[in-house]
Design a binder for these strands. Structure first.
Lengths: 262, 262
DNA sequence: CCGATTTTGTGAAGACCTTCACATGCGCGT
DNA sequence: ACGCGCATGTGAAGGTCTTCACAAAATCGG
């Protein structure tokens, strides 16, 4: 969304201040949502720089690599309390560490994916998660045909085991990649099992308690937004639009239609 | 969230005013990005209502179905110049038509998907597009193994034919579901072929001319944002998170890892 | 040791978005 | 016909985010 768009932001957030509990460094009380949404982007760019053995980076360069402007980068990073060095820039490794910690990725979060259709497969096989603090810990499906199948080293389990899996694997984030009809039901079970963060790929508006955070990814919504801008441009002449989805999965090809077998 | 902020709005938009060209109704000059991002959501809710033979809907009810508040619904719809009836509400069919037109969906836009891995399959099989003004017109892949394969009634063609396909099928929107390494190259070719709207699923920041609109969907970014909020909550106690992705595709299961075979 | 150069960090201004609150209209019942 | 109640549409207020512009700080060369 046009950024965010973006975005896109959908669920409710509680801006609760957190007094540093022991090990955390003294950090600012509240990081703006807009900043939080960009931190993962910086993280990705920094990982690339670290790979290339770059030691320090200026806000200008990081901005270029992230597709934002440098003022935003500086303001964002200053929110974190992170320190760069004037006249020099930011230490890449240090920044990686700071951002990871701010995002709560210092120890990987366990994710469960429900609905192992094309989209579920794509998610399960996505290679970009592990290096970024997110670990796919369990795959669940309602279709007897898919249960027992191994995807990327994980065996697909029956949805009936959802509650046990959440408790047993210490699942923190639930991903719903089921058909629309099953989504709310799966969501309710996740919530009942104690999951408080949900990523929804099903084309429905989920109803959840206030303390649960739901983010939604809706492909046709993205396409329709592009359609709008495209139309704006082409009042008279012909216009076209290109849409790129993040398939940073490594290995297979894109597979999108999510189907839920409930 | 934190919307998305914005999240999620990413690319640049040109707020060019358009004098009504003939058939268009006299409409307001500029619709805010935040509103445009919500129109597809209203559209989906209205389609459901129409299915259920509901004739009129109040801003309150539409808000409930869309997961926003009623003031926002009213302001958004008033931007469109759309008229409801005081004391009654909005005519469902009329509103469907107005929103579709505003989004440029009155005649379906042709979309080409490059990278037919898991994610590409999922996208190609997604049943939610057709009824919403978006038509998948072509599938392309670089892997010889996949070429010729039929997905959802479409034959996978070689990427070498991209330019011809764009011209021949009147492609307006390009979807990039390839591995990260191939993304920029495919993007350049789309742009060269005249495509001006791109949806990127690859985990890279694409570089494009100013007049091209790029939207990005990055799964690990979504998960990391959830991770942040989750962590905020769980300073002390244990917390979990659920994530739901929109798999409104009908038929298969979710498949996400996008892989590009270039 | 000092000045030139570079790049951060941030106050202030401005744009954008959301929320509130209520006047304006419209339909329906009597 | 007429007024009662309901729901829209919108000005104004309040927040959030972005952008600007510059002072502060750090390195390097002479």
């Amino acid at each position: 969304m046009t950024a965010r768009p973006s975005d896109d932001v959908s669920a409710a957030g509680d801006p609760l201040d957190v007094p540093s509990t022991g090990l955390g460094a003294a950090r600012s009380a509240h990081v703006p949502d807009a900043t939080v949404a960009r931190l993962p982007v910086y993280l990705r760019a920094l990982l690339q720089l670290a790979d290339a053995k770059v030691a320090t980076v200026s806000s200008e360069d990081l901005a270029l690599a992230s597709g934002v402007n440098s003022a935003k980068v500086r303001k964002d990073l200053s929110q974190l309390g992170s320190y760069g060095t004037r006249g020099v820039g930011y230490d890449v490794n240090n920044l990686l560490h700071e951002i990871s910690r701010e995002l709560g990725l210092t120890q990987p979060r366990a994710v469960a994916i429900v609905g192992i259709g094309n989209l579920g497969h794509a998610l399960a096989g996505y290679g970009g998660f592990a290096p970024r603090g997110v670990r796919i810990a369990a795959l669940l499906d309602a279709d007897a045909h898919r249960i027992g199948e191994t995807v990327n080293g994980l065996v697909v389990q029956p949805v009936s085991a959802l509650e046990e899996v959440v408790a047993g694997c210490d699942i923190t984030i639930g991903v719903i990649a089921t058909p629309a009809l099953a989504a709310q039901q799966i969501c309710d079970r996740f919530v009942g099992a104690g999951v408080r963060s949900i990523l929804n790929f099903a084309p429905v508006t989920l109803t959840v308690p206030d303390d649960v955070d739901v983010r939604k990814v809706d492909l046709s919504v993205e396409l329709q937004i592009l359609s709008f801008h495209d139309q704006q441009r082409s009042r008279g002449r012909r216009a076209s639009a290109v849409l790129a989805v993040d398939p940073s999965v490594d290995g297979s090809g894109p597979d999108l239609p999510v189907e839920l077998t409930s």
